[in-house]
Each structure stands twice: as C-alpha cells, then as structure tokens.
Amino acid sequence: MRPRQFDLIAFDWDGTLFDSTAVIVRCIQAAVKDVGGAMPSQQAASYVIGMGLMQALAHAAPDVPPEKYPLLGERYRHHYGQSQNAISLFDGVLPMLAALKARHHWLTVATGKSRRGLDEALQAVELQGVFDGSRTADETAGKPSPLMLHELMREFGVDPERTLMVGDTTHDLQMARNAGCACVGVSYGAHEPEAFHALQPLHVAHSVSELRDWLSAHA
C-alpha cells in the first residue's frame, strides 16, 4: 500500500460534505429580511458561508445595527431549523470517508457551524464514529483563523506538513495557509473556484467522486 502523505484530514462541513449551501443562503436572506435589513444577494450570502454564524450574518447584512444581531441570529436558526431535515450528505461522501478510514487517516471536521448544529447534523446523517475529532466556530476562533487546525493538530500530535484541509470556500483554504497546512478546494459548494487559485490548493475537485479519486491517489 502507498504510504500516506497526510495523517490528518480536516473537512469543512457545509458545502463540502453536506449539501446545504442553497438552504443556508435562503435562510440568511430570510433572516435579514425578517429584521428589516436589505436582503443580501445570493452571491453575498454565499460568500459568508464558513464563517462563524454572527460574523457571517453581520457581514451579509451591513445595514443591520448590532443591537439587532441577537434577533438576526434567532431568525436564522428558526429558518434553518425548519429546513435542515431536507438536507443530506452529497452522494459518495460516505464511501469516500470509509475508504480514508481504511487507510487509517485521522478524519476531522473544522466548521463554521455551532457545536450543537454540528452534533445534530452528525446524528441526523448517522455519522457517529466516523470522525475522530472536530472543532466548531463557537468553541474556538472562526475561519480564517488557524486556531481550529492548530487545536486539531495538537490533539492528534500531527505536524502541519502532515495535515490536509478540504473545503469549499476561500475561508477554508486561507485557514489552511495560515496554519501552514496543505489544502484542497471543492468547486461544488459556496465559492467560485476561480477565487481559490491565489491560495494555492493542491487540487480543486469538481465532484465528490473526483475528490475521492484525488485523495485515494495523493493523500
């Protein structure tokens, strides 16, 4: 068997493993409208995916005053809660993760979701036990701060050069660069892949099957 290049693989969640981008965009737009803000465009709402929730909402709704942020977050969670049961993993994610587990990679999640949101998602898609660790935006610094990856690397005793970050946004890839790690982008999530090239990903995958093939050959 080919030796591993990376011991630790960190995946973003929304838009990378979980087919949730369109729902998140609609929920951001609805929440901003609920509190009287100007509804952000699809592009503006997509851009903030991957950030911590309140950082993302504030960025997407610059005309909403800070005193309305708690209500803005509440309205987002309301809309997302009504929609999350309609969201599922991208086709091919489970076999890809199983193949990586068989090669004894540490598999982790580094996400802008809350701890509660991630745990609910993991339970909903029956992924308990697949991931060895995770970090969420409400328990450490949000992306593109490298702290999530620093904490995961420290937890598993893995050096940056043996760590790979996989994500669908420039926030994910910038976090990896800030942490001194390699990264791979996926083009089927929130951000347009043209923005990835300045961040020097090892590869940009255009489907889960292509991502699995690249990881099988190079990770």
Rank of each mutant, 00 (worst) to 15 (best):
F131T: 14
M153H: 02
F196D: 05
D159L: 13
A22D: 15
L94V: 14
V93H: 03
M175G: 09
E155H: 11
E139T: 15
R77K: 15
G157L: 02
M148S: 01
M153A: 11
S114H: 10
L199Q: 04
V109G: 02
G50K: 09
A176S: 13
N85D: 14
D7H: 14
S88M: 00
A30R: 04
A190S: 12
W13T: 06
S216K: 05
K33V: 10
V25D: 11
Y69T: 03
H197M: 02
A98G: 04
K101E: 06
P146L: 07
E74A: 15
Q43G: 01
R103P: 01
F131L: 09
R75P: 04
P201V: 05
E126K: 13
L199N: 09
G157Q: 02
V32A: 13
I9L: 11
Q82A: 14
I49K: 10
T170G: 02
F6H: 01
L202Q: 14
M54A: 08
A38W: 05
A179D: 10
T111Q: 12
D12H: 12
R26Y: 01
F196H: 13
E74Y: 11
V48K: 05
E74M: 11
S114P: 07
A217R: 15
F196Q: 04
A22T: 12
G180K: 06
T140H: 00
P95N: 00
L57N: 04
A124W: 05
M96Y: 07
L100M: 15
A44Q: 12
G142P: 08
M54R: 04
V64T: 10
I9R: 05
V184T: 04
D7F: 02
K68A: 10
R135V: 00
T111N: 11
H206S: 12
H191W: 11
T111D: 13
G50R: 02
M175R: 05
S114I: 06
S134N: 08
C181E: 02
T108S: 11
F18K: 02
L147K: 03
T21P: 01
D213R: 12
D168N: 10
L97P: 04
I28C: 08
A10I: 09
